[in-house]
Design a protein around this nucleic acid. Structure first.
Lengths: 91, 91
DNA sequence: ACAATAGGCAAGCGTCTGCTTGCATGTCAA
DNA sequence: TTGACATGCAAGCAGACGCTTGCCTATTGT
């Protein structure tokens, strides 16, 4: 999951899905091109989505020939759980 | 910074510094070996620390020939700021 | 001064990653 | 059915990454 966040394009994908959930791959590709000038191929985006999905950050819903993508923030909680703010030991 | 978190050894370094701040490089190396079985060279750890320091996750304090390391959690806040929990739009 | 200690610099190497290209699969509309 | 559309699979390649090795600098103790 940390590895999934390590790539700027993947973070941009999450940004885009955070702004508008339930996009298809084509929608996402064109929005990435419009808003962020990401000119990668559809396959490249698809591979990024596979990484994000494996990390649990993106959830997919199949509907006919379309695949709808949703951003799931839950895996991010691990970060706060792993390195919580330091305990104040001065009362 | 996201890239800095992408490596398991670097995350282990943060864990170790979270448990005990103000370690030197040698201290850190032996603790990593003890607690986590990380057998990498001192140079390898040093390179990891350079990445973590550039990401702002580790702050160093020079004192004589020793370099003391401290974990700074502040950069992690960007994650919550970038992808905050979705607004509840149903009152 | 001299040796030991704590750390730094840089080159080299195997592996992983992100991307492209080309083709295959499955679905909808006429 | 046939063609257009949305997506999947896989090989290949250039560059990045993590690690080791070898040598260098600076500080401390005797």
């Amino acid at each position: 999951m940390f590895r999934a966040l390590a790539d700027e394009t993947r973070r941009a994908i999450l940004d885009e899905l955070a702004a508008r959930d339930d996009q298809t791959l084509f929608e996402l590709c064109s929005r990435l091109a419009m808003h962020r000038g990401i000119t990668s191929t559809r396959q490249a985006i698809s591979q990024h989505l596979a990484v994000l999905e494996e990390a649990g950050l993106v959830v997919t819903r199949r509907e006919g020939r379309c695949k709808f993508l949703t951003f799931d923030r839950q895996p991010l909680d691990e970060i706060q759980r792993r390195w919580p703010p330091p305990k104040e030991t001065d009362p």
